[in-house]
Design a binder for these strands. Sequence first.
RNA 1: GGAGGGAUGACAGAGCGGACGAAUGUACCGGUCUUGAAAACCGGCGUGGGCUUGCCCACCGUGGGUUCAAAUCCCACUCCCUCCGCCA
Length: 435
Amino acid sequence: MIDLAQLRREPEFVKAALARRGIANSTMDEITLLDVEHRRLLQEAERLRAEVKDLSRKVGEARRRTDIVGADKLSARSRELGDLEREATQATEAVATALRDQLLMIPNVPAPDVPEGRDENDNVEMRRWWVGMDEGLPFPEYGEHQRVAHWDIGIELGILDIEAGAKLAGSMFPLYRGAGARLLRSLGFFALNSHMADYEEIRPPSFALTETMMSTGHLPKSADDMYAIERDGLWAIPTAEVPLTSMHRGEILEESKLPIRMTAQTACFRREAGAAGRDTRGLLRVHEFDKVELFAYCTPDQSDDAFADILARAEGLLQSLGLTYRVLRLCTGDLGTSSARTFDLEVFSPGVDRWLEVSSVSWFRDYQARRANVRYRTPDGSTALVHTVNGSALAWARIWAAIVETYRQPDGSIALPSVLSPYMGDSMTIGPKAS
RNA sequence: GGAGGGAUGACAGAGCGGACGAAUGUACCGGUCUUGAAAACCGGCGUGGGCUUGCCCACCGUGGGUUCAAAUCCCACUCCCUCCGCCA
């Protein structure tokens, strides 16, 4: 949620910044109007309530003096004012609800360095990385044997069974098998182990309450993108960001404990409602995938470092897996609702000949903390909202695809990167020969 | 799923219609004392909101209700604990 106080203080700045994200000035003017009206009604209601309380006190006093007539008189007057107060309070709440509903739909104020743009085509590429780049080698040339899509490799080697997944849960629910399943498990294990020293490992629930979804900004805006379990009032989480951000919801944290850094691998569920038919083959876009998330609650001063650390870790994993990738700075048109700044990492997957998004590192400033009401105690004894930062490291379905395609050998087998050997053991080569 | 007990400030724990935003203890912060520390003593110590910055309002699990007045009475719900049942 944006800062209403800031909107009051510097309306022109906030309006201009949000206009970059397509929020009309008139929408913000409406919010300002509701805010003014709300405070007017609030004052009126509170004035009446103070008077009722005062009269009630006097009724008590009169009773004690056994002044029954006086007490009844005061009671009657208080009852009248009480009715007025009830009306005023109802009116106040109606306006407060309208204001809140509007406010929940307003995205975060973008950071000044977020480039202008309409959609993903306007994202700005910051850099690329590939094996040997530091030694001056050119961008890799991939051989014919690497130009095979992972869904074909999956069938060939019996490690990915898209049809079996579809049979069980419908299309876009992949099923991995044999060495393919083991590879997926190894990737998660590998990543969690590498973060373990600095990030507390969490295994959260896979479902969340509506309130939890509100905190991250996934609701009310993105309800159509998520799976709902209506009977139980639950939503399937689209990312571990959801439970991690709400871990300390409504709490006041010790500043000395910050930054609080956590990591979690979870299944991530996405309906992909608006993406029917787009890039849906194989693992390019699926309804369920495993992902390791990195997350930090921090003070405003710490948030730049927290962001840099998460980005560096995501890149570090890609580098140790030997995968080619690029870093994009998201433009205003592609930025997620809650984010003030996001960098995406895209891995190059030669078989499908595409860049695949495998990580999104975002800085939310206090937007999510305001929704989730997560604060910390400042040195002067007052409270302030924390900042939240998170990023994937990494989303495994697409990494799986990139690995299988990148490391396919001329004989059709796959020679896995050596960092996985602690987890893959004697299965470092996947292929007809090994199986 | 059934039966009973509970939910109050950082924690423990009183209050069970009228001056209660809430006793008391611990913890914490400041001060006195001390060579220093401890102890003792003194003072402070929840969160949010509004505006005329001194006041007002809200919050005692959540939501309703009764009343001139609710932490306190009534109803519903949620969560926790104990016992029984079921279960990976």
